[in-house]
Simulated scan of single mutants.
Amino acid sequence: MNLIKKSAASVLVAATVTLGAGTAHADPVVPNTGTPALAIPGRHEVDKQQALENMLNELGVGWANGGAAGTAIGALMGLGVGCISMFPGSLAGCIIGTPIGAITGAIVGMGQGNPRAAQAIQEYINTP
């Protein structure tokens, strides 16, 4: 494969990942004010569904405040590093580096955009 085809394929992969990440949108979930659960003294009850909704809301805020930009920047950085680091097989490096950079950028961008997102994820995981 010649250099022009490799470059065109690399740019196509990067553009697809960047555009796909930039078009995602999450609306906040409206809280459900259903019947409250029976409270047992000395025991902290948290509903798994409530913890999930809280986590999704916090992740949505993090995405809106920096997740999309972090994903785009991470994808481009992963593309550059992947293409340069695996020069003889640069197409493989670009294909591997772009999604890894996008995932890393999304995690960092959402964490910086909403610091409460990590706490909400831990609360959801630890809810029985």
Rank of each mutant, 00 (worst) to 15 (best):
D47L: 06
T127F: 07
L59C: 07
A15N: 07
G82R: 01
L12H: 07
V17K: 00
A8W: 09
G74A: 08
K6H: 10
A51D: 00
M1L: 14
A9T: 06
A39M: 12
Y124W: 07
I107R: 09
I96T: 07
H44G: 08
M86A: 11
V108S: 06
H44P: 09
P115T: 00
E53Q: 13
H44A: 09
G34W: 13
E123L: 06
T23E: 12
N114A: 05
K5Q: 12
V11I: 14
G22W: 14
N54D: 14
P128E: 10
V30S: 14
S7Q: 05
A8N: 04
I40Y: 10
L12M: 09
T18N: 06
G22I: 05
T18M: 11
M55S: 00
P28W: 03
G97A: 03
N65W: 13
G62M: 03
S90I: 13
Q112A: 15
M110Y: 09
G20D: 03
C83E: 15
D27W: 00
V61C: 08
V108H: 06
K48C: 07
G89W: 15
I96S: 09
N2C: 05
T16N: 04
S85R: 11
N126C: 08
C83M: 14
P31R: 10
L52I: 08
A37L: 15
A118P: 10
T71P: 00
L91Y: 11
A117L: 05
N32M: 12
T98G: 05
K6G: 05
N65E: 06
G67L: 04
C83G: 08
A92F: 15
R43N: 11
A75F: 04
M110R: 03
T33P: 05
A24W: 15
A24T: 10
V11Q: 08
A21V: 04
G34S: 10
G22S: 15
A24I: 12
G105T: 04
K6S: 08
A26I: 00
E123K: 02
T35C: 11
A92T: 03
A39H: 13
L76Y: 11
G80C: 07
I4E: 12
G105W: 03
A24Y: 15
S90P: 01
T33C: 12
A26W: 01
V17D: 01
P99I: 00
V61L: 15
L76I: 13
C83D: 08
A75R: 03
E53M: 09
P41V: 04
Q49W: 07
Q112G: 07
I107V: 13
L56I: 08
K48H: 09
Q50H: 10
T23Q: 14
N32V: 05
L76N: 05
P36D: 11
T18I: 12
I96G: 02
G101N: 01
A72D: 00
D27Y: 00
T104F: 11
I95N: 01
A8K: 06
N65D: 07
V81L: 15
C94F: 03
V61S: 10
T33D: 12
D47M: 05
I73Y: 12
A75V: 02
I107H: 06
